[in-house]
Design a protein around this nucleic acid. Sequence first.
DNA 1: ATGCCTGAATCTTTCAGA
Length: 257
Amino acid sequence: MRIATYNVNGVNGRLPVLLRWLNETQPDIVCLQELKAQQDNFPEQAIADAGYNAIWHGQKSWNGVAILARGMEIQELSRVLPGDPEDSHSRYIEAIVNGLTIGCLYLPNGNPAPGPKFDYKLKWFERFTQHAAGLYASGKPVVLTGDYNVMPTDLDVYKPERWVDDALFRPETRAAYKNLLAQGWTDAIRKLYPDQKIYTFWDYFRNAYGRDAGLRIDHFLLSPTVDSRLKSAGVDRHVRGWEKTSDHAPVWIELAD
DNA sequence: ATGCCTGAATCTTTCAGA
């Protein structure tokens, strides 16, 4: 079973690229972030025609997350991150698919830091960590995947010294990620490739993709029973080279049945 | 320190992204 995550940066503007990638790689479960579409403006029919059921939580202009499943039922558990009724951002959706609990997240960017946006990022991270603790304690097979907006270590940044004051790489942000992993989660890519430079994002500026000036910010966190099924993982980085593409590339894992 | 690019809405600029 293949599970993928992809920050599409606009699900409607990205539709041809998304459909091409779905057809090419045929993932069984897909988590999408940054839909940038209102709830009733999600391309449900085109995605159904590609063979996928979908649930999503849209929002005007920004954010928005979705879970797709190829020929499988999606049992929605939540479309908000618990812990703050005042939080209006569509950044989390959770469902059971084929016996797996799938949490699809779009963690706040947090720039500029310091400031209210960075405070919001850290608070969101705390709420997510608290929610993850409950999922972990349940003992169920859980996959928490999406755009974490965190480079966990120096290995995950093309030029670490340029990013030390950035919200994606500040000590508080890296500490929050480390604290989350300390619950027992496995970072799938890092487990399989402990020393390899692997990026999932290249910004649109300065020919970043051509220079391989990238960041690893899209992650797969696995609970122990899912970790024991992990066969392989990777980044579909060639998709970043397509016309009208997202600034992120899809990331995937393959699990034993 | 800033802009470089991109998508969506506020729509011929502005905002946010990372």
